[in-house]
Protein backbone atom coordinates (compact mmCIF):
# COMPACT_ATOMS: atom_id res chain seq x y z
CA UNK A 1 0.00 0.00 0.00
CA UNK A 2 2.76 2.44 0.97
CA UNK A 3 4.58 1.49 -2.17
CA UNK A 4 1.54 1.94 -4.38
CA UNK A 5 0.69 5.35 -2.95
CA UNK A 6 4.34 6.30 -3.09
CA UNK A 7 4.68 5.28 -6.71
CA UNK A 8 1.54 7.16 -7.67
CA UNK A 9 2.80 10.25 -5.89
CA UNK A 10 6.22 9.88 -7.47
CA UNK A 11 4.68 9.61 -10.91
CA UNK A 12 2.54 12.71 -10.32
CA UNK A 13 5.56 14.73 -9.17
CA UNK A 14 7.63 13.55 -12.11
CA UNK A 15 4.82 14.33 -14.53
CA UNK A 16 4.43 17.87 -13.21
CA UNK A 17 8.18 18.40 -13.27
CA UNK A 18 8.53 16.98 -16.77
CA UNK A 19 5.77 19.29 -17.95
CA UNK A 20 7.49 22.24 -16.30
CA UNK A 21 10.75 21.12 -17.86
CA UNK A 22 9.27 20.97 -21.35
CA UNK A 23 7.32 24.21 -21.23
CA UNK A 24 9.16 26.51 -23.63
CA UNK A 25 10.94 29.39 -21.93
CA UNK A 26 10.43 32.95 -22.92
CA UNK A 27 13.50 34.34 -24.59
CA UNK A 28 15.29 36.61 -22.14
CA UNK A 29 17.35 39.56 -23.13
CA UNK A 30 20.83 39.53 -21.67
CA UNK A 31 20.98 42.27 -19.06
CA UNK A 32 23.31 45.02 -20.38
CA UNK A 33 24.27 45.88 -16.81
CA UNK A 34 25.52 42.34 -16.23
CA UNK A 35 27.90 42.65 -19.18
CA UNK A 36 29.36 45.89 -17.87
CA UNK A 37 29.61 44.78 -14.27
CA UNK A 38 33.10 43.71 -13.21
CA UNK A 39 34.39 41.44 -10.46
CA UNK A 40 36.55 43.17 -7.81
CA UNK A 41 40.27 43.60 -8.37
CA UNK A 42 42.75 41.35 -6.59
CA UNK A 43 44.39 43.27 -3.75
CA UNK A 44 46.23 42.24 -0.62
CA UNK A 45 46.98 43.89 2.71
CA UNK A 46 49.43 43.22 5.52
CA UNK A 47 46.58 41.48 7.34
CA UNK A 48 45.62 39.27 4.40
CA UNK A 49 46.14 35.54 4.87
CA UNK A 50 45.75 33.36 7.94
CA UNK A 51 48.81 34.79 9.71
CA UNK A 52 48.46 38.42 8.64
CA UNK A 53 48.49 41.25 11.18
CA UNK A 54 47.08 44.75 10.94
CA UNK A 55 49.55 47.52 10.19
CA UNK A 56 48.71 50.03 12.96
CA UNK A 57 50.10 52.98 10.97
CA UNK A 58 47.90 52.01 8.03
CA UNK A 59 44.84 51.72 10.28
CA UNK A 60 45.49 55.20 11.63
CA UNK A 61 45.88 56.57 8.13
CA UNK A 62 42.68 54.79 7.16
CA UNK A 63 40.92 56.32 10.13
CA UNK A 64 42.09 59.71 8.94
CA UNK A 65 40.60 59.07 5.49
CA UNK A 66 37.36 57.87 7.07
CA UNK A 67 37.22 60.90 9.33
CA UNK A 68 38.04 63.50 6.71
CA UNK A 69 36.23 62.00 3.73
CA UNK A 70 33.74 59.22 4.41
CA UNK A 71 32.30 60.33 7.72
CA UNK A 72 30.41 63.23 6.21
CA UNK A 73 27.87 60.74 4.86
CA UNK A 74 28.70 57.30 6.29
CA UNK A 75 28.31 56.32 9.91
CA UNK A 76 30.24 53.76 11.90
CA UNK A 77 27.37 52.80 14.16
CA UNK A 78 28.83 49.88 16.00
CA UNK A 79 32.26 51.35 16.78
CA UNK A 80 32.98 53.37 19.91
CA UNK A 81 35.63 56.06 20.17
CA UNK A 82 37.26 54.05 22.93
CA UNK A 83 37.89 51.28 20.37
CA UNK A 84 40.42 53.57 18.68
CA UNK A 85 42.83 52.84 21.52
CA UNK A 86 43.20 49.40 19.95
CA UNK A 87 44.70 50.85 16.76
CA UNK A 88 47.38 52.73 18.62
CA UNK A 89 45.83 56.02 19.74
CA UNK A 90 46.52 57.06 23.34
CA UNK A 91 43.57 57.59 25.70
CA UNK A 92 44.22 61.35 25.58
CA UNK A 93 44.17 61.33 21.76
CA UNK A 94 40.96 59.33 21.77
CA UNK A 95 39.40 61.78 24.15
CA UNK A 96 40.41 64.68 21.93
CA UNK A 97 39.06 62.92 18.80
CA UNK A 98 35.76 62.20 20.52
CA UNK A 99 35.45 65.76 21.78
CA UNK A 100 35.49 67.04 18.20
CA UNK A 101 31.97 65.69 17.77
CA UNK A 102 28.71 66.73 19.35
CA UNK A 103 26.27 64.02 20.30
CA UNK A 104 22.65 64.41 21.34
CA UNK A 105 21.99 64.56 25.05
CA UNK A 106 19.36 65.67 27.55
CA UNK A 107 19.90 68.73 29.69
CA UNK A 108 19.75 67.37 33.25
CA UNK A 109 18.12 70.54 34.54
CA UNK A 110 15.58 71.42 31.89
CA UNK A 111 15.06 68.08 30.18
CA UNK A 112 15.50 69.67 26.80
CA UNK A 113 17.43 67.94 24.03
CA UNK A 114 20.86 69.47 23.69
CA UNK A 115 24.21 68.32 22.37
CA UNK A 116 27.37 67.70 24.28
CA UNK A 117 30.90 66.82 23.20
CA UNK A 118 31.25 63.07 22.64
CA UNK A 119 33.10 60.94 25.17
CA UNK A 120 35.35 57.96 24.46
CA UNK A 121 32.53 55.72 25.71
CA UNK A 122 30.17 57.02 23.03
CA UNK A 123 29.53 55.38 19.70
CA UNK A 124 30.80 57.15 16.62
CA UNK A 125 29.02 60.29 15.56
CA UNK A 126 26.13 59.66 13.16
CA UNK A 127 26.08 61.96 10.16
CA UNK A 128 22.30 61.60 9.85
CA UNK A 129 19.80 60.98 12.61
CA UNK A 130 17.87 58.41 10.54
CA UNK A 131 17.48 56.89 7.11
CA UNK A 132 14.92 59.44 5.95
CA UNK A 133 17.21 62.34 6.78
CA UNK A 134 20.09 60.58 5.02
CA UNK A 135 18.03 60.02 1.88
CA UNK A 136 16.72 63.58 1.90
CA UNK A 137 20.26 64.92 2.00
CA UNK A 138 21.61 62.54 -0.63
CA UNK A 139 19.26 62.69 -3.56
CA UNK A 140 17.27 59.71 -2.20
CA UNK A 141 20.35 57.50 -1.93
CA UNK A 142 21.11 55.92 1.44
CA UNK A 143 24.81 55.95 2.37
CA UNK A 144 25.21 52.61 4.16
CA UNK A 145 26.72 52.32 7.60
CA UNK A 146 30.36 51.30 7.24
CA UNK A 147 31.03 49.47 10.50
CA UNK A 148 30.24 46.10 8.91
CA UNK A 149 30.63 46.94 5.25
CA UNK A 150 33.57 44.56 4.75
CA UNK A 151 31.56 41.64 6.11
CA UNK A 152 28.35 42.77 4.43
CA UNK A 153 29.67 42.57 0.89
CA UNK A 154 30.87 39.56 -1.00
CA UNK A 155 34.65 39.70 -1.24
CA UNK A 156 34.34 42.76 1.02
CA UNK A 157 37.82 44.28 1.07
CA UNK A 158 38.52 43.88 -2.63
CA UNK A 159 35.03 45.10 -3.43
CA UNK A 160 35.29 48.33 -1.44
CA UNK A 161 38.80 48.96 -2.75
CA UNK A 162 37.68 48.40 -6.34
CA UNK A 163 34.65 50.60 -5.85
CA UNK A 164 36.75 53.47 -4.47
CA UNK A 165 39.26 53.23 -7.29
CA UNK A 166 36.76 52.32 -10.02
CA UNK A 167 35.65 55.80 -10.98
CA UNK A 168 36.68 57.80 -13.99
CA UNK A 169 35.92 55.34 -16.76
CA UNK A 170 33.72 56.49 -19.60
CA UNK A 171 30.60 54.34 -19.96
CA UNK A 172 30.48 52.48 -23.27
CA UNK A 173 28.78 54.38 -26.09
CA UNK A 174 25.02 54.04 -26.00
CA UNK A 175 24.90 53.42 -22.26
CA UNK A 176 23.06 56.21 -20.51
CA UNK A 177 24.10 57.04 -16.96
CA UNK A 178 21.02 58.50 -15.25
CA UNK A 179 21.20 62.00 -13.85
CA UNK A 180 22.76 62.24 -10.41
CA UNK A 181 24.46 58.86 -10.71
CA UNK A 182 28.04 57.99 -11.52
CA UNK A 183 29.45 55.21 -13.67
CA UNK A 184 31.39 52.61 -11.71
CA UNK A 185 31.65 49.10 -13.19
CA UNK A 186 32.34 47.53 -9.77
CA UNK A 187 28.97 48.57 -8.38
CA UNK A 188 26.24 45.95 -8.87
CA UNK A 189 24.13 48.23 -11.05
CA UNK A 190 27.21 50.04 -12.46
CA UNK A 191 25.49 53.35 -11.62
CA UNK A 192 26.32 54.54 -8.14
CA UNK A 193 24.91 57.55 -6.33
CA UNK A 194 28.18 58.28 -4.52
CA UNK A 195 30.34 60.66 -6.49
CA UNK A 196 34.05 59.86 -6.71
CA UNK A 197 35.04 60.27 -3.07
CA UNK A 198 38.85 60.20 -3.34
CA UNK A 199 41.18 62.33 -5.39
CA UNK A 200 44.96 62.44 -5.18
CA UNK A 201 46.26 64.49 -2.29
CA UNK A 202 42.85 64.78 -0.65
CA UNK A 203 44.21 64.17 2.83
CA UNK A 204 47.59 65.00 4.22
CA UNK A 205 49.15 62.06 6.03
CA UNK A 206 51.17 62.97 9.11
CA UNK A 207 53.68 60.19 8.38
CA UNK A 208 54.46 61.59 4.93
CA UNK A 209 52.89 58.72 2.97
CA UNK A 210 51.88 60.10 -0.44
CA UNK A 211 48.10 60.34 -0.47
CA UNK A 212 47.34 58.74 -3.81
CA UNK A 213 43.86 57.44 -4.49
CA UNK A 214 45.22 53.90 -4.41
CA UNK A 215 46.97 54.46 -1.09
CA UNK A 216 43.99 56.13 0.53
CA UNK A 217 41.64 53.41 -0.71
CA UNK A 218 43.91 50.71 0.68
CA UNK A 219 44.24 52.51 3.99
CA UNK A 220 40.57 53.15 4.48
CA UNK A 221 39.70 49.57 3.53
CA UNK A 222 42.20 48.31 6.08
CA UNK A 223 40.59 50.55 8.67
CA UNK A 224 37.13 49.34 7.72
CA UNK A 225 38.25 45.73 7.97
CA UNK A 226 39.39 46.47 11.48
CA UNK A 227 36.11 48.26 12.19
CA UNK A 228 34.19 45.20 10.99
CA UNK A 229 36.40 42.64 12.69
CA UNK A 230 38.28 44.20 15.59
CA UNK A 231 38.83 40.67 16.94
CA UNK A 232 40.67 39.54 13.81
CA UNK A 233 44.19 39.29 15.22
CA UNK A 234 43.26 37.68 18.51
CA UNK A 235 40.90 35.33 16.66
CA UNK A 236 43.70 34.09 14.44
CA UNK A 237 46.06 33.77 17.38
CA UNK A 238 43.61 31.76 19.46
CA UNK A 239 42.69 29.71 16.39
CA UNK A 240 46.29 28.83 15.69
CA UNK A 241 46.97 27.86 19.28
CA UNK A 242 43.81 25.75 19.34
CA UNK A 243 44.77 24.00 16.11
CA UNK A 244 48.25 23.20 17.40
CA UNK A 245 46.81 21.86 20.62
CA UNK A 246 44.17 19.81 18.83
CA UNK A 247 46.75 18.37 16.42
CA UNK A 248 48.74 17.01 19.34
CA UNK A 249 45.56 15.72 20.93
CA UNK A 250 44.59 14.09 17.63
CA UNK A 251 47.93 12.28 17.43
CA UNK A 252 47.66 11.14 21.05
CA UNK A 253 44.07 10.01 20.62
CA UNK A 254 45.00 8.18 17.43
CA UNK A 255 47.80 6.32 19.23
CA UNK A 256 45.41 5.54 22.06
CA UNK A 257 42.84 4.27 19.59
CA UNK A 258 45.42 2.07 17.84
CA UNK A 259 46.63 0.68 21.11
CA UNK A 260 43.15 -0.07 22.43
CA UNK A 261 42.40 -1.88 19.20
CA UNK A 262 45.82 -3.52 18.92
CA UNK A 263 44.63 -6.86 20.24
CA UNK A 264 41.53 -7.16 18.04
CA UNK A 265 42.38 -5.73 14.66
CA UNK A 266 43.30 -8.49 12.27
Amino acid sequence: MVRLVGMALGLVFCFVLAWAFLVPREATQPDPVKLLHREPKEVSWPHTGPFGKFDRAQLQRGFQVYKEVCSSCHGLYHVHYRDLEKIGFTPAQVKAIAAEYEVPAIDPNTGETITRPALPTDKFYRPFPNEQAARAANNNAYPPDLSLIIKARKNGESYVYSLLTGYGEEPPPGFEVPDGLNYNPYFHSVNIAMAQPLVDGQVEYADGTPATVDQMAKDVVAFLRWAAEPELEVRRRVGLASLLFLSILAVLSYLTYRRVWADVKP
Binding site: L249, L252, A262, D263
Partner: peptide
Protein backbone atom coordinates in the same frame (compact mmCIF):
# COMPACT_ATOMS: atom_id res chain seq x y z
CA UNK B 1 48.82 -10.80 19.27
CA UNK B 2 48.28 -9.67 22.80
CA UNK B 3 48.06 -12.60 25.07
CA UNK B 4 48.79 -11.86 28.66
CA UNK B 5 52.51 -12.61 28.50
CA UNK B 6 53.55 -10.57 25.48
CA UNK B 7 51.46 -7.63 26.64
CA UNK B 8 53.26 -7.42 29.97
CA UNK B 9 56.25 -5.21 28.99
CA UNK B 10 53.88 -2.97 27.14
CA UNK B 11 51.83 -1.96 30.10
CA UNK B 12 53.88 1.00 31.43
CA UNK B 13 53.98 2.58 27.99
CA UNK B 14 50.32 2.01 27.53
CA UNK B 15 49.55 3.60 30.85
CA UNK B 16 51.64 6.61 29.94
CA UNK B 17 49.83 7.02 26.63
CA UNK B 18 46.41 6.80 28.23
CA UNK B 19 47.36 9.23 30.96
CA UNK B 20 48.88 11.68 28.49
CA UNK B 21 45.80 11.57 26.26
CA UNK B 22 43.47 11.94 29.22
CA UNK B 23 45.51 14.81 30.66
CA UNK B 24 45.59 16.61 27.33
CA UNK B 25 41.88 16.16 26.92
CA UNK B 26 41.24 17.49 30.42
CA UNK B 27 43.48 20.53 29.87
CA UNK B 28 41.77 21.24 26.57
Amino acid sequence: MADAQTAQPDIPRRDFLYIATGAFGAVG
